[in-house]
């Protein structure tokens, strides 16, 4: 066996065999086409291997290493400490998980309205063009601009507090002095509200594109059957855009721990607003701030490994079941 492998000709013999096999199976035309395809994909594949594949494999190794590169389970012990008490930055992981899930669950309820809303806009409610343009404002402006605007809006000198005072609604001195996001009693509900509200009626291009692909004849059949608007939406439109919805729903479960890092910009995780998404970004920023010291990589990587291990089976099972709900459609 060792002789076989030590023989320098072994590899060239195997390559020769492979070449003969390919020549027999595929003609010249096919082989040229393959060459073209491989040339096209080679650069993205190399970049992917370096910046995604290697990076994520290294992340797993880092989770089990200390600052000197020795094997350790200390990073996972730190996670346990962060669950039952606090980490070195003063965050409790369990509280952050609850905050993430709360946000996630509220957003999922909103999605039902968002889908119906996108459908209604697609069905051309009067002013649909203006509405969908305006509803895209938070997405168009991007995280930072919309966040800074809303942050000022609910600040101590912002209009919301002034209106509240004008209406004679009593708020605590803490809120009066610091604004809604910086007072412990109001930070979480305010953050949830200003993050969730834009999502409810946000117009979805991808979903609308999928609705637009449904032929008019499908709706005509429904009309002849005498079905109402909601039944048309549920029994005709939803099944026909199901492949797009599957991607959306899988996207939800994929981002169950990472979706909400809005706390980073709004409150920097203070007053009980920290979530897992915030925490992961906060840890990444800490690495940058501290110049990438060797001992800083293990803990965030261990967290990543843990949350990935929890999320992957959830996503796989979800996808499996979703694909069984409606057969894949083409129209």
């Amino acid at each position: 066996m060792a002789d076989r492998f030590s023989n320098g000709n072994f590899l060239s013999r195997q390559i020769g065999k492979l070449k003969t096999h390919i020549k027999k199976k595929y003609n010249m035309e096919d082989r040229q086409a393959f060459g073209f395809c491989y040339l096209m994909v080679i650069l993205p594949v190399i970049t992917f291997c370096v910046f995604w594949l290697y990076l994520n494999i290294d992340s797993v190794f880092l989770a089990f290493q200390d600052g000197d590169g020795n094997f350790t389970l200390d990073n996972f012990k730190q996670i346990w400490t962060a669950f039952v008490a606090e980490d070195k930055y003063g965050f409790n992981l369990w509280d952050m998980l609850l905050q993430s899930w709360l946000f996630w669950i509220i957003c999922r309820f909103c999605w039902v309205v968002q889908t119906l809303s996108t459908y209604i806009l697609y069905k051309r409610i009067p002013g649909h063009y203006i509405f969908r343009t305006i509803f895209m404002i938070p997405s168009v402006l991007g995280g930072i601009v919309w966040t800074l605007i809303m942050k000022s809006f609910v600040a101590a000198d912002g209009p919301i507090l002034q209106w509240v005072n004008m209406m004679g609604i009593e708020v605590s001195l803490d809120v009066q002095m610091k604004g809604f996001l910086n007072a412990i009693e109001s930070a979480v509900p305010t953050l949830l509200l200003i993050q969730v509200l834009p999502a409810i009626f946000q117009f979805s291009f991808v979903l609308s594109g999928a609705f637009a692909r449904i032929g008019d004849e499908m709706f005509e059949v429904g009309k002849l059957e005498g079905i109402g608007f909601i039944r048309e939406f549920i029994t005709i439109s939803i099944p026909l855009v199901w492949p797009t919805i599957i991607i959306t729903i899988i996207g939800w479960f994929s981002s169950i721990f990472t979706q909400d890092n809005g706390a980073f910009l709004y409150t920097n995780g203070k007053h009980g607003t920290a979530s897992v998404g915030f925490y992961l970004f906060y840890l990444a920023k800490s690495i940058t701030d501290e110049g990438g010291k060797a001992g800083l990589y293990g803990y965030p990587s261990a967290l990543g490994v843990l949350f990935t291990a929890i999320t992957v089976p959830i996503v796989m099972v979800t996808r499996h079941f979703l694909e069984k709900v409606h057969a894949d459609v083409s129209y």
Binding site: F51, L280, M316
Partner: peptide, 25 residues
Amino acid sequence: LYGVIVFRITIPIIGGSAAGYKLIR
């Protein structure tokens, strides 16, 4: 390759930022 694209979109790999910083550095 198509499977890899779908895998990357649908399967969440969380917390790569530390390894990302290390690699970029």
